[in-house]
């Protein structure tokens, strides 16, 4: 949604983003995430895939590769490149989204791709390209974070060696309160939005942006909240990958034994 659209819309008279009891519009407290569902390996044709629901966000990520790099001039003789495509489908927002890449989706593709690049062992696959496609089926604020969360599960599902999974979520300021994981109303009528990708194990920050204004203290609080959110999401990402290979009567732990002597 463009800046112009935002200004033309006002918060309905008398509606408070945060009520007297500290509850938000969707009933969450300030430090609560929206309900999250992550599933790995949902697409048959892709090398790796994942589906993420984060509140009303619905996001599908597919990974192909490493595969021969096209166009040829982009290939790097020493390492793989990550080509990330973030795309919002035309029916993902209230008024129809004009299909095709725009300034916003090019920016998100770039930052999400760069976060993934940091995590993947690119030097193991020289001259190749790892293609990541993020399709936003339904958007409700925070899609770049949910997109990165999905993409990193999809990369792991594709069997591509990586340093760690990358969870991401946003924090921001709404009605003078710093809150975690803004929804659409809070994003539109709030004061600031800070998306963050953070690896809990190492404390590394792979993506950090800020839209709006925060004081130093508010910023610190927002980062603290977002880090907590990422830690929760990280666990859900791990669970999703475990579930992928724990069905039909044998879980991954047990089949370790079998794997031992099976080399032909």
């Amino acid at each position: 949604m463009s800046y112009g659209d935002l200004m033309s819309m006002d918060l309905p008279e008398g509606l408070k983003l945060i009520d007297e009891e500290g509850k938000r519009l969707d009933g969450r407290r300030a430090d609560e995430l929206r309900p999250i569902k992550i599933e790995a390996g949902v697409l048959r044709r892709a090398d790796g895939s994942a589906y993420v629901e984060m509140g009303k966000n619905k996001i599908l990520a597919a990974v192909y590769g490493p595969r021969e790099c096209h166009p040829r001039h982009l290939q790097d003789p020493t390492r793989a490149i990550v080509q990330c495509h973030y795309n919002m489908l035309s029916f993902s927002v209230d008024d129809r989204k004009r299909p095709g890449p725009d300034r916003r989706s090019v920016e998100i593709s770039k930052i999400v791709g760069e976060a993934l690049e940091y995590s993947i062992f690119l030097e193991q696959f020289p001259r190749t390209s790892i293609d990541v496609y993020i399709a936003v089926l339904q958007a409700n604020a925070g899609t770049r974070c949910a997109g990165l969360t999905a993409a990193s599960v999809a990369v792991a599902d594709a069997g591509i060696p990586m340093r760690d999974l990358i969870p991401a979520c946003a924090a921001g300021k709404v009605a003078d309160t710093v809150v975690l994981d803004l929804n659409k109303e809070e994003d539109n009528f709030g004061d600031a939005d800070v998306p963050l990708a953070y690896i809990p194990r190492t404390g590394e920050i792979l993506l950090l942006q800020m839209d709006g204004h925060l004081t130093q203290a508010e910023f610190d609080r927002a980062i603290e909240l977002a880090k907590g959110g990422c830690t929760t999401i990280y666990g859900l990402q791990q669970d999703a990958l475990r579930r992928r290979y724990a069905f039909a009567g044998g879980d991954a732990q047990e089949s370790e034994q079998e794997a031992g002597g099976n080399e032909a």
Binding site: G65, R67, F121, D157, G159, R163, E256, G260
Partner: peptide
């Protein structure tokens, strides 16, 4: 030591390897 891939842990000789469950042939 940390795992890089989605796979199963197997011990062989002096090494602990992660046997990948998916991925491309190198």
């Amino acid at each position: 030591a940390y795992s890089t891939t989605l796979g199963l842990r197997i011990s062989k000789g002096n090494y602990v390897d992660i046997l990948p469950l998916s991925g491309k042939y190198v």
